[in-house]
Amino acid sequence: MDPKIRLLIIDDEPLIRRAFQKLFSGSDYHVVVAEDGLQGLEIWQKHHFDFVFIDILMPGLNGWEVLESKSEWGSTRVQMMSAFTGDLSDKKVWIEKIDGFLPKPFENVMGIKQWVESHKA
């Protein structure tokens, strides 16, 4: 069993990053946050994460572009988050690859933690 569950949060909203850090506080989790897509991608390329939450609409590289650049992530669980979905018709490829889609505002924030707990390892 891994010592800690590693999470990467890529979102340009400070409160969202803070919320995740608070939600996954404690010794069981190691939370890394990135402010924008480029930073997040760099971090993801260098390190492995168990869970990655990516906001779609961000300045610079958006969520989809991060996925395209990373292209492969093994067993990592990836969820996209966003207030607006936009036109998803050309993102079908990625939608099939990711594990889920969280519309903002979150309907059930605590439920996110439950999901992580049930899918670790």
Binding site: E13, P14, P105, F106, V109, M110
Partner: peptide, 12 residues
């Protein structure tokens, strides 16, 4: 975005 952030944090 900030609103979502607020709501998330408040819920937590």
């Amino acid at each position: 975005n900030p609103l979502a952030g607020i709501l998330a944090l408040v819920e937590i």
